[in-house]
């Protein structure tokens, strides 16, 4: 219900925007829809985009459900991709299943490793994890740049900063059209994380700590230990996103391997209200909007108008869901009472 109203508002605002920019809204909207959800091929592209968005969003949401901000998913994705690419380099002659498994495990390790520093600093010394994770993005970017410009540069790349193509057995199998196996990996990880947070004792402690650190201490939950595991886990999930993106979509390590997914993941997680269970749906919508938004640029819509349009749809559709949880109070008091959503 709220979703529909929000979408309608977004489309209306978008119409005004497109008319103002001199475009035919109907033509633009139908192209957006066709390119993202119109046929199985379009679905495949959208799903491939939703996979890294969903995993990055999950990474941020895991930390967020404990009140921590992992702003470093972007760098952790790169670290995961680097680790996976490294395994592919040394294990080029391994059988496919073993190679891919090893790559993804390495990706998890790489992302987790990049989060260890901020996690320890936060848990032991109380250093703000927002700053440290953000700064490590820069480190990961430079590392990728150095690798693809230097030691890992493909001699056949005509001097472009690209690592060599992955061997065929290092690529994820496809499910249908171009949709790759990463979809099932992401779905499984999101389900596992949602179940873990909702139904396990570990998740219970996480939710207590996220709701009130003082209550966690009161009941004997060790906060430093929790902070450490949660931040490293968050980094590991982001790292997995990097590995899946490398082996599923990119097929080679490039400077732009993370493609902003780590930052988009923050938006995904925030719109999912930091709930792992909400990440999948948001990521799918986000993916569809991104793919649709990119497609209309071929119709002469400038990239900035396209980006604004994407933002309208995202915030209209999901933001409405967020606001429908509040009740407007008109008695002059500035308190709005959060209510459990009825939908």
């Amino acid at each position: 219900m709220a979703f529909g109203i929000g979408l309608a508002i977004a489309l209306f605002l978008g119409t005004l925007l497109l008319l103002g920019a001199g475009h035919d809204p109907l033509r633009i909207y139908s192209r957006m829809f066709e390119a993202s959800l119109g046929d199985p091929d379009a679905w495949a592209i959208t799903l491939n985009r939703a996979v890294p968005l969903g995993l990055a969003g999950l990474a941020v949401a895991i930390a967020g459900s404990m009140g921590l901000w992992n702003i470093g998913a972007e760098g952790q994705i790169m670290a995961g991709a680097i680790a996976a690419a490294w395994v592919a380099r040394i294990g080029g002659d391994w059988p496919g299943f073993a190679l891919i498994t090893a790559m993804l495990i390495a990706a998890i390790g790489g992302g987790g490793l990049l989060a260890v520093g901020p996690a320890v600093a936060r848990a032991k010394l109380g250093v703000n994890e927002i700053i440290t994770t953000l700064m490590l993005n820069e480190v990961a970017i430079r590392l990728v740049q150095w690798l693809v410009h230097g030691p890992w540069k493909d001699p056949d790349s005509f001097n472009f900063p690209l690592a060599p193509m992955l061997p065929d057995q290092a690529r994820l199998p496809t499910l249908f059209s171009r949709a790759h196996f990463g979809l099932l990996i992401a779905a499984a990880v999101i389900v596992m994380a949602s179940v873990a947070v909702r139904y396990t004792a570990w998740g219970y402690e996480l939710r207590i700590a996220g709701s009130s650190g003082a209550t966690a201490r009161y009941s004997g939950i060790s906060l430093p230990k929790k902070v450490l595991t949660v931040l490293v886990l968050s980094g590991a999930v982001a790292g997995l996103a990097g590995g899946v993106e490398l082996a599923g979509t990119a097929d080679r390590l490039t400077e732009t391997i993370s493609n902003g997914f780590g930052f988009a993941g923050i938006i995904v997680a925030a719109l999912a209200l930091m709930r792992p269970s909400g990440v999948a749906a948001v990521a799918l919508l986000f993916g569809a909007v991104q793919i649709g938004g990119q497609s209309i640029q071929t119709l002469g819509v400038s990239s900035s108008v396209s980006t604004i349009l994407q933002a309208f749809v995202l915030f209209g559709a999901i933001g409405a869901g967020v606001f429908s949880r509040y009740r407007l109070s008109l008695d002059g008091g500035s308190h709005s009472i959060p209510e459990k959503a009825k939908s």
């Binding site: 939710r207 709701s211 009161y218």
Partner: peptide, 17 residues
């Protein structure tokens, strides 16, 4: 805020110990 965790359910709070 100390004895009870504000954003969780009644059941979640009852089983804290």
């Amino acid at each position: 805020g100390v004895g009870l965790a504000p954003r969780l359910s009644i059941t979640d709070n009852a089983i804290l110990r």
